[in-house]
Nucleic acid binder design. Structure first.
Lengths: 205, 205
DNA sequence: GACGCCATACCGACTGGTTGGTATGGTATG
DNA sequence: CATACCATACCAACCAGTCGGTATGGCGTC
């Protein structure tokens, strides 16, 4: 009977992790107070420190949480069905573009936001963010390698380098969107990215 | 006699602004303490609050300072000498790549770093960062428009959109470099950017 | 099935260090 | 002596983390 589906809410620990994702993305790591996260999760500080040793510990676990959340999201995305790996890569960009909905804190990247703030002050968080990005790059890499093999086998760029460049563009698009308070600039940047990848893979303008 | 060239150091206000640039870039806006900046400038808090009303006021002035510093840097850069505007744009990217030297805090973008942290909590700082980016984009725009006119007059992209995309890539490259603690990934991303811009402007691979 | 026992989960008051900002006074210069 | 500039000393608010205590529920035992 325990742990059944009758509970409307996820358990407290998961609520804290979800709250960490949204509060850190909205206010940044340092400006976010532990009690902000507690309030968003419907708990008090006593409960928080029952689940996590420290705020930094929360950040580390939240990065893992982010990795598995986004992992499931992209695993379930429709672009995997296409036959040509180049089409899958281009459809991945379209999918990223379709995610640019709602507020900035809702669609921007948790680890990208956090790592820029703490890359120098918390090596552990930096590594956690690096690994999260690496895990996402890895999911792209197979399609990208297959697409290169098929359409640009002898080109002088590597699939991994291009996958990283794609992440650069996406992360940078978020920064521009934040600076201009407008998601349109991010969408335009993804259009350019799609055109570039298309050119590299033999698609015309 | 005042303000003459005999002083080895710039005046205190300028030292505080310079210190703000480096300390904010290394630690982030929120984690940076006023006294950190004072120490870096060789002053105490009393002196700081003689020149700036608040930490936020400093951030606003530092963004303007950043704009004029980088404005001079790019104005003096060698890429303006090239005849073809497309070559100037490509040489701009090379120049950006040549700046990827030293520590991350030394070469990353001040306003890009700051805006990601405070875009939601301080509208004034966000606008200051937006304007700084816009000013830099404007310096690129003339060359880019001329290059488009010359080499891709009928293409279905705009010079301004491409200039913004270039900034996206650069900002994103900084994030990846921070996450991986390695500037090589940023350089590779700029290589991709150069190839893309080259393709749009009729340069081959 | 009542009881003792213990682990998990959570609350909320408290603390000790930190930090943005202030008050005040000293000194150099014109 | 007025003003600009800057140091020392200080304050009040804030906040991560602690701690004593409570509620709940599972589990073995008689």
């Amino acid at each position: 009977m325990d742990g059944g589906a009758m509970n409307i809410q996820p358990d407290s620990r998961t609520r804290l992790l979800d709250a960490a994702l949204s509060v850190f993305r909205a206010k940044g790591y340092n400006a976010a107070r532990v009690e902000d996260i507690c309030a968003a999760a419907g708990l008090t500080k006593g409960g928080f420190f029952h689940h996590f040793r420290s705020k930094e510990d929360l950040a580390l676990k939240a990065a893992e949480h982010w990795t598995s959340m986004t992992g499931r999201l992209f695993e379930a995305a429709p672009y995997h069905d296409l036959e040509d790996p180049a089409d899958r890569v281009l459809a991945y960009i379209d999918f990223r573009k379709s995610l640019l909905r709602g507020t900035l804190a809702e669609y921007t990247c948790f680890v990208g936001t956090m790592v820029q703030e703490v890359y120098d002050s918390s090596p552990e968080i930096r590594v956690a963010c690096e690994q999260s990005i690496a895990a996402h790059v890895a999911t792209l890499l197979h399609d990208l390698e297959a697409a290169k093999q098929l359409h640009a086998a002898n080109a002088d760029w590597s699939a991994e380098g291009l996958a990283l460049h794609m992440q650069s563009v996406i992360q940078g698009a978020f920064i521009l969107a934040k600076a201009r308070n407008d998601s349109a600039v991010a969408a335009e940047s993804l259009d350019h990215l799609k055109r570039y990848v298309g050119l590299l893979l033999g698609r015309h303008l």
